[in-house]
Simulated assay, not measured.
Amino acid sequence: MKNKILSIILAVFVLLTSGCINNNNFKISNHEKKVIDPNISILNEDKVVTNLKLQGDLKNIYYADGNKILILADKLYLYDLGAREVIAEAPKLLFNRENYWVIENGYAVVGETLISRNDKVRAVKGVRNYNCIFYDHNLNKVAEFDFNKLVGDNAIGLDMENISFSSDGTKVLYALTDGLYQYDFVKNKKSTIVNLKSNDYSERFGIVAFEQIDFTNYDKNIAFKAQSFDIPVLTDSSSFDSCGILNTNGSLLWNRGVFDDYKCKKITAYNDHILLAEDITIASGRLFVFEYPSDKMISHILLEKLESGSVSGSDFGKYFATSIPNNDSWIIRIYNTKTGKLESEQQVSSGGKEYMAQDPIIKIIDDTKTCIMLFGSKRDDILTKMVVSQF
């Protein structure tokens, strides 16, 4: 793949104004249907304040600490949104896939590499290697860990969404086809949280496979999205999507497939709440939010049905964004997570049909009410666009 020079326009928009397995009796609070606030305007013009030129292919953006983001291009860049400049950089790691986490002393990254044989990468049967790198706040590498020591040379079931670091970076969760595990870097100790090899489905709460995991409730609990069976298991039944919460000792708090006919497909976990997004193919226009410490499930009704299948949470969860296509442009809406209030709506021109094939990557910085949108980064044959707005 040939590198390309990216000219990423950072623009500031000014708004006019700103099936049940363990049946818990949740109180589901339904908010009223939204109407467009006359003070919320659809934005069609932008004011360019600066140009950021990077060599290479911009692939992704990740949350960093404070008013900053990590930009993955030919290098790893730490970009200060307030100063509008790159303040640190590190060599790009040679991973096929990777994900980044903000931890107490900097950042952690886990990367996957497919081992080549005879110059041919065997994506299906090839060997997958995993490595973990720790950076300080200035992107200096401080430690490296061979993840294969935990998962083996060709771990089955491991995925970037099946890995999660504690906020202090001392523990990591990971799920394989045979179970959910935790590793303590300080104690050099691996522990089994859920054993999926057990033939007794009740012992593993009906769970067949973990698809997403994340620490929540200040690292006291584990939020998960899974495939599960009813308990007791019904003859000739198939697994279904479920979401739930575990204690870190492996005891179950709850695991549910349906909430008032609402099926969860994706979780985004924070310390005091969890976003539960729908499958976009059956989106109903609702977003469920599980809150701590009340253990209450809140249902927000969004403006359009498709929105609930495309949800992006902010850095600390105060807001969430949705994206829906509108001809050759994207409509981006930002809601308040607590109240469900529509905070802003803007229409961003895609620049062509090629930018409409995949949803944009959206990040929101709570403190500064800044929204970062990345268009076209999942394709190698088009120019990646990055737009930054404030609401």
Score class of each variant (00 low, 15 high):
residue 309 G to H: 09
residue 314 S to W: 06
residue 313 G to A: 12
residue 321 A to V: 05
residue 322 T to I: 03
residue 311 V to N: 05
residue 264 C to A: 14
residue 272 D to Y: 04
residue 311 V to M: 05
residue 319 Y to V: 00
residue 325 P to C: 01
residue 335 Y to S: 08
residue 283 A to L: 03
residue 271 N to E: 14
residue 309 G to L: 08
residue 322 T to Q: 06
residue 297 M to C: 09
residue 300 H to G: 02
residue 276 L to S: 06
residue 267 I to N: 11
residue 292 Y to K: 12
residue 290 F to E: 05
residue 282 I to Y: 03
residue 275 L to N: 02
residue 301 I to L: 11
residue 284 S to P: 06
residue 335 Y to K: 08
residue 324 I to P: 04
residue 291 E to K: 12
residue 298 I to A: 04
residue 331 I to T: 08
residue 331 I to K: 01
residue 305 K to S: 15
residue 326 N to M: 06
residue 267 I to D: 05
residue 286 R to V: 05
residue 332 I to P: 05
residue 305 K to E: 15
residue 299 S to H: 08
residue 267 I to K: 00
residue 279 D to N: 15
residue 303 L to R: 08
residue 267 I to A: 11
residue 325 P to R: 00
residue 293 P to L: 00
residue 290 F to H: 11
residue 276 L to H: 04
residue 269 A to K: 00
residue 307 E to G: 07
residue 279 D to Y: 06
residue 315 D to T: 04
residue 285 G to R: 07
residue 298 I to K: 15
residue 312 S to G: 00
residue 295 D to V: 08
residue 296 K to W: 01
residue 285 G to C: 07
residue 320 F to R: 01
residue 284 S to Q: 14
residue 292 Y to C: 03
residue 324 I to M: 11
residue 334 I to S: 10
residue 307 E to C: 06
residue 319 Y to N: 03
residue 331 I to E: 12
residue 280 I to Y: 13
residue 268 T to N: 08
residue 316 F to H: 12
residue 312 S to C: 07
residue 278 E to S: 11
residue 266 K to S: 09
residue 288 F to N: 15
residue 284 S to L: 05
residue 308 S to P: 03
residue 264 C to F: 10
residue 276 L to C: 08
residue 296 K to Q: 13
residue 320 F to Y: 14
residue 265 K to R: 11
residue 308 S to A: 09
residue 297 M to S: 04
residue 276 L to G: 07
residue 319 Y to A: 03
residue 334 I to Q: 06
residue 331 I to Q: 06
residue 319 Y to L: 01
residue 290 F to Y: 15
residue 310 S to L: 07
residue 280 I to P: 14
residue 272 D to W: 04
residue 296 K to E: 13
residue 313 G to M: 08
residue 307 E to Y: 02
residue 326 N to R: 08
residue 314 S to E: 07
residue 287 L to W: 03
residue 334 I to H: 02
residue 272 D to V: 10
residue 280 I to D: 11
residue 277 A to T: 09
residue 332 I to L: 12
residue 306 L to P: 14
residue 310 S to T: 14
residue 300 H to V: 03
residue 277 A to E: 08
